[in-house]
Design a protein around this nucleic acid. Structure first.
Length: 357
DNA sequence: TCTGGGGTCCTAGGACCC
DNA sequence: TCTGGGGTCCTAGGACCC
């Protein structure tokens, strides 16, 4: 019995944050635009969140320290990240895309997978449908996206990244291995900087080299991920497109403008972060059991310390008290602190909590 | 290169239970 | 007393995603 061939689409909005900003501010058009931390004339300490293609011409990239971006392109328009605005626009786009599929999966704020197997019979029809999506998003939102179509999520995602911006790339099942082979392993999802380095040490740079490698050796080096990488390199991926389940954790963190040894300041901010997390907990109607704090020292050494309580709670005082207790051990006079964070997890919803009570 | 912020998932070890 | 096997929960750290 042969399974029906699937038809999967991946949609990735082009430089989403800065594209929304350009739409809202036509005067930015044609200029380099960078969304991220305050550059503070080259002294800022955050990173670039997104930049437009004009800024990329200067070498600016996502994830780059904002101070480096300032060196490369001081004349760019620098904007703070307006997450609420982007989330509103994202919701409208996701609403449009949902209409094109039976199975839908949002991925981050600006990407989505669609299973359109039941709606098309062949790749030409899939291409037409993908083009229709792009046109509707452009007509209604004045934004462009890059789209990939393939027999599974991995191939669709790599395909959407192949031509940018405003791209549309179709990769048929029978062409998938040949399409992937010359690309860097870094193009595969889940292969980041560290894994790329480890693969490089094994003499593996391209997806084709990964596909020809001994899978048992990959499993020895990378565990379950090794087997997964080997399958991906062969264009194999059986994972379903499915709506993400409920939220698993809520957190807030803060990097100080200057590393600090002022523990009063640290604890005040810890309280503020706890209050913000607590607001989110109430907004989602959740009860939590686990509190985790995060501390990063000036040398970037980072620790987390958590506690699971023997009861479920949604009270601010429980969160504040636990976070403070967990943080105390890290407050050492000889160590300045760069970042603190508060996270809650092990959730139960309010409805479930009522039935238990 | 001097490294944000909000998330998810995996791993490995230890506690504890039957 | 020197010893099992399975299951679950918890913790800390790490890699990855956008």
């Amino acid at each position: 019995m042969s399974e029906k061939r699937r038809m999967i689409v991946h949609v990735d909005m082009d430089h989403f944050f800065t594209a929304v900003e350009e739409r809202e501010h036509p005067e930015f058009k044609g200029k380099p635009v960078v969304a991220g931390a305050d550059p503070k004339a080259g002294k800022g300490r955050g990173v670039v969140s997104t930049c437009n293609y004009e800024a990329r011409k200067f070498g600016v990239r996502s994830g780059m320290p904002i101070s480096k971006a300032w060196q490369l392109c001081p004349e760019a328009v620098y904007l703070p990240v307006n997450y609420e605005l982007y989330a509103r626009v994202s919701n409208e786009i996701m609403g449009i895309l949902r209409g094109y599929s039976d199975k839908f999966e949002q991925w981050g704020i600006d990407e989505a997978f669609l299973d359109i197997t039941s709606r098309v019979k062949e790749y030409a029809e899939a291409e037409a449908l993908a083009r229709q999506m792009k046109n509707e998003i452009h007509a209604k939102q004045k934004l462009t996206c890059s789209t990939g179509v393939g027999p599974n999520k991995i191939i669709a995602k790599v395909a959407s990244d192949f031509q940018k911006p405003d791209g549309l790339t179709i990769v048929k099942e029978e062409e998938a291995e040949k399409f992937l082979a010359p690309l860097s392993v870094r193009k595969l999802p889940w292969i980041g900087r560290k894994t790329e380095q480890k693969l490089d040490a094994l003499g593996i740079k391209t997806i084709g080299e990964l596909a020809r490698y001994d899978p048992t050796v990959l499993t020895e080096h990378f565990g379950a991920m090794g087997a997964q990488m080997y399958l991906m390199a062969h264009g194999i991926d059986r994972s379903e497109v499915e709506e993400r389940g409920g939220i698993k954790s809520l957190s807030r963190e803060l990097t100080f403008e200057v590393d600090t040894g002022d523990f009063g300041l640290v604890l005040n901010n810890l309280d503020r972060l706890s209050e913000q997390v607590h607001e989110d907990v109430l907004r989602h109607g959740l009860f939590f059991k686990t509190v985790t704090v995060k501390v990063r020292y000036e040398n970037f050494e980072t620790h987390t310390h958590g506690k699971t309580m023997p009861f479920i709670t949604n009270r601010l005082q429980d969160l504040k008290k636990t976070a403070k207790e967990l943080t105390q051990a890290y407050l050492r006079p000889e160590r300045k602190i760069r970042l603190i964070g508060v996270r809650v997890s092990s959730f139960t919803s309010a409805e479930k909590q009522k039935t238990l009570a």
